[in-house]
Amino acid sequence: MDLPSQDQSARNPVRALAEKLAASLGGPDAPYRAQRTFTATMMHLMASLLQAASDADPAVQNEVLGFPEGLVIGMSVLGDTPQMRLRKTGSRLVRLASSDPAKPNLAIIFKHLTHAFLVLSFQESTARSFANDRMITQGDVALAMRLVRCLNRMEAVTLPKLVAERALKAYPDLPLAEKLSLSVRTYAYLLRDVWRNR
C-alpha cells in the first residue's frame, strides 16, 4: 500500500479507474500552472467541505469541539498565502473571509506546489505525503492529529469510495446508507454556503 506498483493497479480495476481519474487531472507531471489552479481550487473546496461537514456530521462536530475556541487552521503551499483558513467557533469550523488577517495557529504547509497537487488530486495519500516528509505541520501535534481525523472523516463521507480509498490509509466501516445520508446533508450545507456567499 505504501509504494503502489504498476502491476498492482493492473490487477485491481478500482485502482485502475482511480488512476484514470488522476490522469485526467493531468497526472503527476501536469504543468505547474495547471497544478497551481487545481490546488487553489481544491483547497477552497476542502475548506468549504470541512465547514459543511462540521454542520452536518456529528462525528466531525465531536472532533471540532476538542479544538480550543478561536483556533485558526490553515493549509497552504510554502511561500504562498494560505488558500484554506478556518476558525473553530463552537462545534463549527467557519471559513475565514479573505479580508480576515488572522494567521493560522495550526497549519499544514506543503513544501512544494507539486506535493500539494499530488495529495489534493488523490495521487498520494495524506499519510504517504507525511511519511515522505513533504509537508510541515506547525502547531500542537495533538491538534494536528485531530485535524487529520476531521479531514479523514470528511473525505470518507463526501468522496466516492474509489477516490476516498486513495486518499485514506483505511476506508472506514461506514454503512452505505449512513454514508449517503451524511454526504447528502454535507453537500446540502455546502450548497447553502455557496448560495449565501454568492
Binding site: A127, A131, V141, A142, A144, M145, R146, V148
Partner: peptide, 9 residues
C-alpha cells in the same frame, strides 16, 4: 494515543 503523531506512519 489517537493524538500521537506516531500514528500517522
Amino acid at each position: 494515543a489517537l493524538d500521537d503523531g506516531a500514528l500517522v506512519t
